[in-house]
Simulated scan of single mutants.
Amino acid sequence: MAKRVGINRDAVVRAAAKIADDDGWDALTLACVAKKLRVRSPSLYNHVGGLEGIRRELKLLALRDLNTALSRATIGKSRDDAVRGLAAAYRAFVKHHPGTYAATMVAAPKNDPAVEAAAGQVVETCLSVLSGYELERREGLHAIRAMRSAVHGFVALENAGGFGIPLDVDKSFDWLVSALLKGLGASRPQRSP
């Protein structure tokens, strides 16, 4: 195997992301990453802490990229428009980066400040989007869980080919988001006259 010069941590992580997105999270191995980079598996340890290290770096990459996508999609928007932008960006991220997204599925470990901070930034972006609904923080977190679960489930079915009925999937997604918005409106604190 010819050795490739110029490999760094970023190149290893980007190669791993490509493998995860193309072949699935479970297909990610040190051997696959080494082959893609045209190096021997042991040389990866110069850049990452084995497969566990690669998966940790992918989680960081996924959380940062997801947060960037969510932030860009919601800048300058408020309330329903912001939530629609958030949901659409989340859906697009999951559809285009299914293997990388899989790295976000487990909650951030409490003993990894970098991962916890990256996950916290995603949560804060989502809470910012929900600020127009005047929810208390705890209610906002419940809303984020509900939205994440709904959009995740929708895209998981979509990616797996689970929508066989000849009906516009984008319209179904809009319907889902509209239902979430109704729930947000219903949970908004009522002001006394």
Rank of each mutant, 00 (worst) to 15 (best):
V129D: 08
A89Y: 04
V115D: 13
G24D: 01
E124M: 12
E57V: 02
H47K: 08
T74K: 12
R148K: 12
P109G: 03
A150E: 01
D26Y: 07
V129W: 11
E134V: 09
S71N: 06
S41A: 15
Y101S: 06
G53L: 06
L66W: 11
A69C: 02
D81V: 01
A119R: 09
S41W: 00
V129L: 10
R79Y: 00
D65Q: 15
Y101C: 05
H47A: 06
Y133L: 05
A103Q: 11
N159H: 05
V155E: 00
E134Y: 05
P166K: 15
T125D: 09
L86T: 03
L60P: 03
V94Q: 15
A150R: 09
R56E: 11
R79K: 14
V115Q: 14
N46G: 08
C126L: 10
W25K: 04
A27T: 07
K36M: 12
E139Y: 08
V123C: 09
D112W: 02
G120T: 08
S149V: 01
E158S: 08
E116W: 06
L28P: 02
I165E: 13
D21P: 03
L60K: 13
L44G: 04
A62R: 04
L130K: 12
T29M: 09
R56K: 14
I75F: 06
K95Y: 01
R91T: 01
V122M: 11
F154D: 01
N111W: 02
F154R: 07
A119C: 02
D65E: 15
T100H: 05
L141S: 07
H152D: 13
L30K: 12
